[in-house]
Nucleic acid binder design. Structure first.
Lengths: 584, 584
DNA sequence: TTGTCTCCCTTCGGGAGACAA
DNA sequence: TTGTCTCCCGAAGGGAGACAA
């Protein structure tokens, strides 16, 4: 006899968001590994997302990273802010590569990979615009970029006077908003007038926030919101069910009640970070919330990408390149810089953590001033030499490295001695295993280097036995070492080079691997990787540069459109080809 | 190293409200039994408070009432609505009367009994006004009743032109509001202008809501809100800590997110009612939220009051009187009526529950039309006869009762057969024991009747063993039977009579009993009860009628003031003296 | 004494073209 | 092409006395 209210209330699930919509709202920087894929979970990165500093003191043990398999991904949008986020289920009990996980390889269970159907205007179109002060502040309306009006809004009858229409727009929750779309002014331009300021006020938009207009294949117009980093406050609706998230409910309940430090950076309550780390430490499945936001680094990273990045012996002076979202999140651009410092000492609770271990002096520091230290997998190694011009210094540097501690596989590397690791507060965790090396440049010139040399040092990632197991894989694969040119796009496979100004190779057209095979394993048998791009030796692969198709837009493109999103679910920004780690 | 945010967030307790402020905001009808006192908890009444119908189907057993002891009371105000509510901790493990409870008798641990220091204007003053449409709707201001301006607001300088000032007013959360107070118009009157509509909008006040202005002993001006019954929506901030309330967090979390049936009547989520009943059924301490609102019946009732009321054999035709709050909650007035029906059959899950068992035809039905059935302890028995004028009908009625089933102590009363009780769905609970009788009128005239006759029937309250033990007490006390006049205030002890037009005896100046003694037991030894008023035989007692002191206000008093609140924590509206049930 | 009305002034919302970047 | 400005109209906010209950 319970009423509908009663029945519905406790069982209410956070509704999910269409993958295409989610992706358009999240922007190009958002990347969620596919269901079934191997990833590393970095508690340190997770902690960065928290609104306050998580207290890990209650945990029996701590680790820098845990190898997990993605068991589920659910895409949501915050009921308060409309911002999209993902609930990622991680399972630290990584099965052996021979035993496919349930759910692994089933595209239906992997909502994070919307295969954009066509490159043209047929199906799903989206356009993002950062709100100007005029858009957000004044009583007035919204200046509709012509491209948006043309490609997304219904066609206006320009013979009418004035040419105007009402358009119905759905937000990510399915609520609809009515805007008057008018073409007026001298010179003529598209504007949203009536209804717009109600939307702005209701969604609490400010200048700097973005709106994402979309048109789906049914012709419906949708609108999403991408907020500028300010305005936060931990919002955790714990849509992931009662596991780890349930531990947080009480905290977030109170947090939702009042302001609770509205300048907090993170979205996730600190307690849920601790809960996730605790479960991960116990080898139990856990769930994390991932807010795709500018400035937030992924703390769930494709294992391949991490392993490749960690096979480099990072040193000061290395020249790196990092892909950064354009202001409107529509595209990625590359910035270059030079490693100015490699952190080797412990930070806080994280002894020898690779997380943000690299400090880089960027060529354009004014643009990247908010970028602090970066993690190795975020950058692409351009050159290992401190000064490209000076061959001498490269040699000198290598010699110096060799003479100091350029070690092999043995334990006890001086820079990252395992013995020292064991004496830290995380002594309960075995030392880990990623190979860590510097590849002597010069074989094919300063801008080329080889990988897979046997000079592998011990990893700076100390983690648990799941990672330890990979050591065998790493060693087993050394026989498949290949040499690859450093130059972007300069392999015989890819054909033409992709101009760096267009973003270079930033996109991985990731195919969902067949059941029973693992992407990394596949690499070890029939393919190689170039900048994270899996190149299948035995089958045709499209390795085009995935330029944004701006043909339809024309013009200078200073306001880039996200007219359609290329396949770039897993942008693995790794320095170069490597064949490592058949996963267990 | 956890930040303040981190430390504060999960531990954040719902702030409490000063008892005086709480009481002023709750109104005169609010009554919370003192800490340490014996009460009955009525799940049926609790369920009435819920926003939706609680689903008790998962519970192993159900009961009509549980005898509990109040172990704690915390006074709060809703962060959303400013409405005051209490979190009452109940312990069903009632100790024997000989063992004083920890915390019992300590006034400091009992925030619900602010002893109003002085009757005059010295300390705490309050005034409530129901908002008129002009106060709430229009752009304009608030008409300040003269009494409020004079007694609560700072004195205006009437020589200034115009006579105006800004006053600083604090709400129940400690936030302050600035109002312009001006004395203008022809004829002159006090008004709040600037700042008022901001307050109205912010607090979402509508005509019919009340504001309560208060001035505390420090001279601060405070404002509370008493909302008309409409506008609800379950708001449960679970301020009571993680016990029963914790079970509800998830539901209320979602409920707080969106509308969730804003026309729901109750404030408490149905799930928390079920949780409380479950705990009570397991003899575990539990907590309930009590919103002091007009129209909501108390579901935690002083045991004494219930026991006395249930010693009456309620029958059709009895004349009863009920105290009802005046519209502005400032005073209580009495309404009379005649019992038109006594429920004997089960309602829903509640076999033979005394909750709202009486249906009364009120003399002024237009005023009490919203009052449905009432519980026996809500009313005062004025006369047991169907028609005061007709001695014949009284006798006839008694004869009829005698001939049908006017039984003694034996099991198997026809009206409330114990055997039938045992066959209900609550068969796991033993039948209970309250004596239930009708007292023959006529011994001292139709308006007098005696109590304590040996004609006691079985109770209609079926509850658990804690109540069952009282049976012995009931029998043991029969020898102490006393006769008392029915007429209000008409005992030799009290002296003068209290005019019914002034509310009659509605206030109990409740003394906290000494340890080891029970109020009811005391009654059997050295005191009697009159209308629930304990009259100690061996010591002087103030039995005045506790009239509201309206002297200061003067005038016709059509807008009553709650200038100061008399001691009326436990208004026991019981028909007359009875000596029953020494509690275990 | 106080609720409500009407009057009237001020403020704000917001829709338009002008103009410049 | 589009961001911002200013203009301007109408609606809403809100403070005042008039008047009546």
């Amino acid at each position: 006899m319970a009423t509908e209210e009663e029945a519905a209330a406790p069982a209410r699930e956070m509704p999910t968001v269409e993958p295409q919509v989610w992706k358009a709202c999240a922007g190009t920087a958002a990347r969620i590994p596919a269901v079934g894929s191997r990833v590393y979970y970095f508690p340190q990165g997770h902690a960065e997302q928290a609104g306050s500093r998580p207290d890990f003191s209650t945990l029996p043990s701590l680790f820098n990273a845990v190898l997990c398999r993605i068991s589920a991904v659910r895409l949501h949008a915050s009921p308060d802010t409309d911002e999209v986020f993902a609930c990622i289920s991680l399972d630290p009990r990584v099965p052996s590569a021979d035993v496919p996980l349930p759910g692994y390889m089933t595209p239906s269970s992997c909502p994070s990979l919307p295969e954009v159907a066509d490159g043209g205007g047929g199906g799903f179109v989206s356009f993002a615009k950062i709100l100007t002060p005029s858009d957000a502040n004044n009583g007035g309306g919204f200046s509709v970029p012509r491209f948006c009006a043309d490609s997304i809004f219904p066609r206006l009858d320009f013979n009418a006077y004035p040419p105007a229409q009402f358009i119905l727009v759905y937000d990510v929750h399915g609520n609809h908003w009515k805007f008057r779309h008018i073409y007026r002014g001298t010179p003529r331009r598209h504007l949203l007038t009536t209804g717009w300021s109600k939307f702005v006020n209701s969604k609490k938009l400010i200048a700097g926030d973005s709106v994402v207009f979309m048109r789906n294949s049914s012709g419906q117009i949708l609108v999403g919101i991408r907020r500028t980093s300010r305005f936060c406050g931990p919002v955790d609706y714990s849509p992931c069910g009662p596991s780890a998230a349930a531990l947080v409910n009480r905290g977030s309940l109170l947090a939702g009640t009042e302001g609770f430090s509205s300048n907090a950076r993170g979205r996730v309550p600190a307690t849920s970070v601790v809960a996730a780390v605790r479960l991960a430490g116990m080898d139990l499945p856990f769930k994390v919330l991932y807010y795709a936001r500018a400035g937030s680094s992924d703390f769930v990273v494709a294992a391949e990408s991490v392993e490749v990045a960690m096979s480099v012996r990072w040193t000061t002076g290395m020249r790196v390149r990092m892909s950064v979202e354009t202001e409107d999140s529509a595209r990625m651009t590359w910035y270059e810089g030079r490693v100015s410092s490699v952190r080797m000492n412990s930070v806080d609770l994280w002894p020898r953590s690779p997380w943000r271990m690299l400090e880089v002096t960027w060529d354009e520091p004014e643009i990247l001033q908010n970028v602090g230290n970066v993690s190795p997998w975020q950058v692409v190694l351009v050159s290992a030499s401190p000064q490209i011009e000076s061959q001498f210094s490269v040699i000198k540097r290598i010699k110096m490295l060799e003479s100091s501690e350029f070690c092999g596989d043995r334990e006890g590397d001086m820079l990252f001695p395992v013995t020292e690791l064991k004496s830290t507060i995380v002594g309960s965790l075995p030392s880990s295993v990623f190979s860590y090396s510097v590849f002597p440049a010069g074989m094919q010139g300063a801008r080329h280097y080889s990988i897979g040399t046997p000079n592998l040092c011990d990893s700076i990632m100390n983690t648990n036995r799941r990672v330890l197991n990979d050591l065998q894989g790493v060693n087993a694969l050394r026989k498949d070492d290949v040499f690859v040119e450093l130059k972007i796009g300069g392999t015989s496979q890819s054909g033409g080079s992709s101009p760096p100004s267009q973003g270079g190779i930033q996109v991985l057209d990731r195919k969902i691997p067949e059941p029973g095979s693992d992407p990394v394993k596949k690499t070890s048998t029939g393919s190689i990787q170039l900048f994270g791009q899996v190149i299948h030796i035995d089958q045709p692969t499209n390795v085009d540069a995935n330029r944004e198709s701006e043909d339809t837009e024309g013009g200078d493109g200073s306001h880039g459109s996200s007219f359609h999103y290329p396949h770039k679910q897993l942008v693995i920004q790794c320095p170069r080809v490597s064949a490592i780690g058949a996963c267990q």
